[in-house]
Computed example of a mutant assay.
Amino acid sequence: MLAITNAIIYDGKGNRFEDRALIVEKGKFTKLIPVNEVTDSFRIINAQEKVLTPGLIDVHTHLGISEEGVGIEGADYNETSSSVTPSLRAIDGINPMEIGFKDARRSGVTTVQVMPGSANVIGGEMAVLKTAGNIVDEMVVKAPSGMKAALGENPKRFHGGKGRMPVTRMGVAAQLREKLIEAQNYLQKEEKERKLDLENLAKVLKKEIPLRVHAHRADDILTALRIKREFDIDMTIEHCTEGHKISEFIAEHNVKVSVGPTMSTRSKVELKDKGWTTIKTLIDAGISCSLTTDHPVVGIDYLATSAVHAIRNGLSEQEALQTITLNAAKHLGIENRVGSIEPGKDADFVIWSGSPFDLMAKVERVFIEGEEV
C-alpha cells in the first residue's frame, strides 16, 4: 500500500485536508487516515506540504487524432469527404504515442475525451482515455462516449465552400434531423442488414450515448436544444461561447456544458463575444460546466491555466477545480471512476509544488491508477 503524507489535499468535491494521509492500494484510492496512523508497512511518499489534487480531465480534445508538428499526415480528425459521417470512430485514428499525450501527463491531465473534428454536421463517435500507455484499447475508459455533431460556421465553410449542402445554418440542422429520422426508421424496421452509420446513431436515440454538439453562437445553441426536444435525446453543448446570453434557457434543458477554448483568439465570427465570464454565468444559472482547451486549438498544457483565468473572472478556486475534475467526469459519465479523491475510484492524482491556481506552481508528480507516469 502507498501512503502520501503531509500534503494539502483538495479532493475535487470542495473539501480541503491538511492532516490526512491518502492511502492507495491496487490502483484505487482506499481512504484518508490521520497521519499518525501511517506505519512502516506502507510505502510512503512525504509530500512536504505540497498540494495534491485529483488528476485533471479535459472533456473535449483531439489529442492523438490531430497530431502536432506532422501536418496532413497526422490530420485524422475530419473526414471531409462527406458532411455526415456517424460511422466513424475516433478510436481508429488515435496515435497514443503522439507527443500531446506526454504534454498532457506533464501538465497533470490524466483523462481526456478524444473526438472527431467539427467540419461535419455529424462527425462520428468519440472515446475517453487515460493519458498513459502505448495501446489505445488498454487506455480506454469509455468508448463510445458520445456522438459528435456540429452546428454553425464549420460545416458551412468546409462543405458549403465546396458547393454542396450544407450552405446555410438551415441546411446544417436539416441534415442532422434527416439522419436522426433515418436512424429512427432503421430502429423501427429492425432490419437484418447492418448499417454502421445508423447503428451508431441508434445509440443516441436509445440514450446509450449523448449527442455532443459543437455550438458557439447563441442561435446555434438554441437549434441544438430544439433538436434535443424533438428527438428526446441526451445532449451536451460543446464550447457554448455565447451561452451567457441565454443561460437561464439552457438551464431548463438538463444539459451539461463544456466551455472553451477561451484562451484562443477570436479567429472567426462565432468567437467575437467569447470571454471568461461565460462559465461563471452558466454556473450561477445552475448548469454543470467544464473547461476545455479543445487541444490542439489551445495546448492541453494550458488546462490548469484556463482555470486560473476563470478564477480571475469570478469563479472560486473550488468551482474552478471542479470544472477540470469532478464536473468534467460527470460531463463524460465516468464520475464513478475519476474526478475526485474517494474510496474505490482510480488513483489518478497530481502533486503540485504549490497551489495549482498559482501560475508559478509546477506539476511535480503525476499518478494514473496508482502508477507514477
Rank of each mutant, 00 (worst) to 15 (best):
G344T: 05
E238C: 04
A150H: 01
L359K: 13
P34W: 01
P261R: 02
G55D: 02
R217M: 14
R194G: 00
E252Y: 01
N185Y: 11
P210D: 07
G286T: 05
G133E: 05
L129P: 07
T281L: 05
D232C: 07
V70Q: 00
G339P: 02
K256I: 03
V298H: 06
A347Y: 05
K192E: 14
E153S: 05
N78Y: 01
H331K: 10
G64A: 03
N134K: 11
V298W: 04
K245G: 00
W352K: 06
I23G: 10
D294Q: 08
Y186A: 06
R164G: 01
N95Y: 06
F101P: 12
K203R: 15
T80S: 03
S107H: 04
K50M: 13
E73N: 04
T262G: 00
L187F: 06
K28M: 12
M1D: 06
T53F: 09
E319D: 14
T85I: 10
K189P: 00
K102I: 12
S66I: 02
E208F: 11
L2D: 05
I122N: 01
E230P: 13
K26G: 07
Q322L: 07
I246N: 11
P261H: 01
G339E: 03
A173E: 08
G299E: 12
H253A: 05
S306E: 15
T131Q: 07
P155N: 00
V84M: 00
S290T: 15
V59L: 05
L52Y: 04
G27F: 06
N336D: 15
I209T: 08
K245C: 02
K280A: 08
K268Y: 08
S87A: 13
V213K: 08
L321V: 07
I9Q: 03
I99G: 04
E342R: 07
G71T: 02
R177V: 13
I237S: 08
K13D: 12
L201W: 02
E319K: 11
K28H: 11
I311V: 15
E199V: 10
N154G: 06
M1T: 12
R194T: 12
K156P: 02
I237R: 07
I45N: 02
I341N: 07
K179C: 01
G286D: 04
R226K: 15
N154K: 06
D40I: 03
D92F: 08
